[in-house]
Simulated scan of single mutants.
Amino acid sequence: MTYFSFTFINVILPIFLVIAAGAVMNTAFHIDIKSLTKLQFYILMPSMLFLKVYESQLSSQVIKAATTVTLTAIISIVAMSMIIARFRGYSKSESSVFVNSSTFFNSGNYSLPLIQLLFNDPVAVSIQAIILMAHNVAFFTIGIFTASSGNRSPKEALINVLKMPLLYIMAFAAIMKSSGVIIPDPILDPLKILTDGYMAIALLTLGAQLSETKFTISNSGLYLSSFIRLIVSPAIAFLIVTLLGIDGLLARVLVIGLGAPTAVNVVLTSIELDNEPEFASQAVFTSTILSMITINLVIMAAFALIPA
């Protein structure tokens, strides 16, 4: 069995089987995707993020490196996507959704289970959790502002940013950890239970969302967005870790994690803010399907080019 087929069967296929289960479930029973999304957004994801920050045993150097690489890559892709959108003559709303779909990736309900299955190492999962937190900080600031600015004033866009709860959850967890506060088990145990349920619900919700997406094969912007998201993004991450002299597990997780498809949150915010939701949905669908091949190539490249 080749490395490609081994990785596909043992890492990629399990993820897509759960995604497919979510699609089948929604097709058969027409589940309430908005309720599942709210469950993730307000309970499961905050619990998982809080617990990962609070229990993280990563050194401050690793946390700083992971955060720096993630944010640098995101800012680089935002700048690149803005230039491309301007060159292609997109309207303000089209430009904003193109930038977000190219930049923001499925760091939670795709990358997190991917890293867990691929490395089977709590350190790798903790690193991905840091990537997830850095990504969420960027999304719920830059991403929300970009999506809001598609059809709103800068002031209204800023207000939407300040409404996002995850920013405050992450800040609170960091304060609790740095202050050495010991959380009693009756509070910590429910957080662990909710964290354990996050992965399954996230993948099922992704499948349900994708099952309702209509695909337009003639839209070249979708393929360009997917190319930036799936190929350019991990390439930029590899360039950054190389320039910073980062290698080993940290570098591999960063490169692989940043090769994930477009985040479902891009769709949710586009729907909520009425900003090109159809393009956003198609971008998630297209990039997720294509990632079945590209993420395997990124994994192979990361293991081949980055020293252990």
Rank of each mutant, 00 (worst) to 15 (best):
M1I: 14
F4L: 15
F8D: 07
I9H: 06
I9N: 13
I9P: 00
V11W: 05
L13Y: 04
L13Q: 10
I15D: 05
I15Q: 05
F16D: 09
F16L: 04
L17S: 09
L17D: 02
I19A: 06
A20Y: 01
A20F: 03
G22V: 00
A23W: 04
M25K: 01
M25H: 06
N26P: 08
T27N: 15
H30G: 13
I31V: 13
D32W: 08
I33N: 11
I33C: 05
K34I: 01
Y42L: 09
P46T: 04
S47A: 15
L49T: 13
S56G: 07
Q61D: 06
Q61V: 10
Q61I: 00
I63W: 02
I63Y: 03
K64N: 04
A65S: 12
A66N: 05
T67F: 08
T67A: 09
L71E: 10
L71R: 08
I74W: 06
I75G: 12
V78R: 10
A79G: 07
M80T: 12
S81W: 03
I84F: 03
A85M: 00
A85H: 07
R86G: 15
Y90I: 07
S91L: 12
K92Q: 14
S96C: 11
V97C: 03
F98G: 05
N100Q: 14
T103P: 05
F105A: 15
N106F: 13
S107E: 06
S107A: 13
S107Y: 10
Y110L: 10
P113F: 03
L114N: 08
L117A: 07
L118A: 09
P122H: 04
S126R: 02
I127A: 08
I131D: 14
V137E: 07
F139C: 13
T141Y: 11
T146A: 06
T146W: 00
A147V: 12
S149I: 13
N151P: 08
R152V: 09
A157M: 14
L158T: 15
K163S: 02
P165L: 01
L167I: 10
I169K: 01
A173R: 02
S179G: 08
G180C: 08
I182H: 10
I182R: 03
P184C: 01
L191S: 01
T195L: 00
T195A: 00
Y198E: 06
M199L: 12
M199A: 12
M199W: 01
L204V: 03
A208R: 01
A208E: 00
Q209R: 11
S211H: 01
E212Q: 15
K214S: 15
I217H: 08
Y223S: 07
L224S: 09
R229I: 11
L230Y: 02
F238A: 14
L239K: 02
T242A: 02
T242W: 08
L249C: 03
L250H: 08
R252T: 09
V253Q: 06
L258R: 10
L258P: 12
L258G: 06
L268Q: 09
L268I: 14
T269C: 11
I271T: 09
L273N: 03
E276Q: 14
E276G: 04
F279E: 01
A280N: 01
V284N: 00
T286M: 13
T294D: 01
L297F: 10
L297Y: 00
I299G: 02
I299M: 10
F303G: 04
A304Q: 15
